[in-house]
Amino acid sequence: MIVIRAADTQTIETPNGNHGTSLATPRLGATEVTVVRQRQAPGGFNPTHIQNREEVMVLLSGHVTVSSGDERVALSPNETLIVPANAPHRVDNTGDTDAEWLIISPSGMQFYRETGEEASPPWIK
């Protein structure tokens, strides 16, 4: 078993009011699954992006809207969204407080910008 203590995690700030904390990633010893805690400031957003694997998003606090094409889904705390592989989507904090959620995905997930360029968020490693 591997224990990952809070003191061993690091929160990394990324653009647009976002912060990511690796909870279970390859760097921390996970081999089958990746778990990341995301925090987003009010008005913050994750620009449209694509992952090559399914992503599960569990909203812990705040309110976000996830957009994919013409579809917009508002999430409240304790709600879960499953984003299919290769679905372009964007996450916006639509509330007036920080929003926090877990991202759960298979290890080895790759991210791509809307342009098709591969992205490598530092918290996914």
Rank of each mutant, 00 (worst) to 15 (best):
L28Y: 10
L28C: 00
A30N: 06
A30L: 03
A30C: 08
A30Q: 02
T31H: 15
E32S: 08
V33G: 07
T34K: 15
V35R: 04
V35Q: 09
V35C: 07
R37W: 13
R37A: 09
Q38D: 07
R39P: 06
Q40H: 11
Q40V: 02
A41C: 15
A41F: 11
P42Y: 07
G43T: 12
G43N: 13
G43C: 09
F45I: 06
N46P: 01
H49E: 03
H49R: 06
I50T: 12
I50W: 03
I50D: 05
I50H: 11
Q51Y: 08
Q51V: 13
Q51M: 12
Q51A: 15
R53I: 10
E54Q: 14
E54P: 00
E54F: 07
E54R: 00
E54N: 13
E55D: 05
E55V: 12
V56C: 06
V56K: 11
V56Q: 10
M57V: 08
V58T: 13
L59R: 04
L60Q: 10
G62A: 13
H63E: 04
V64N: 09
V64H: 14
V64C: 07
V64M: 04
V64P: 02
T65C: 09
V66C: 08
S67V: 05
S67L: 07
S67Y: 11
S68R: 03
S68L: 01
S68E: 05
G69T: 04
G69E: 01
G69R: 02
D70R: 13
D70G: 09
E71H: 09
V73E: 05
N78R: 11
E79I: 10
L81C: 04
I82L: 09
V83M: 01
P84V: 15
P84E: 04
A85N: 04
A85P: 02
N86K: 00
A87R: 14
R90W: 11
V91E: 08
D92E: 12
D92G: 14
N93F: 06
N93V: 15
T94V: 05
G95V: 00
D96H: 15
D96A: 10
T97L: 15
T97D: 01
D98T: 15
D98V: 15
A99S: 11
A99D: 05
E100G: 06
E100R: 06
W101G: 03
W101R: 09
W101N: 04
L102N: 06
L102G: 00
L102K: 01
L102D: 03
L102Q: 00
L102W: 00
I103L: 01
I104W: 02
S107W: 13
G108S: 08
G108T: 14
M109L: 07
F111I: 03
F111K: 01
Y112T: 04
Y112F: 14
Y112G: 02
R113W: 11
E114D: 12
G116S: 11
E117C: 11
E117Y: 02
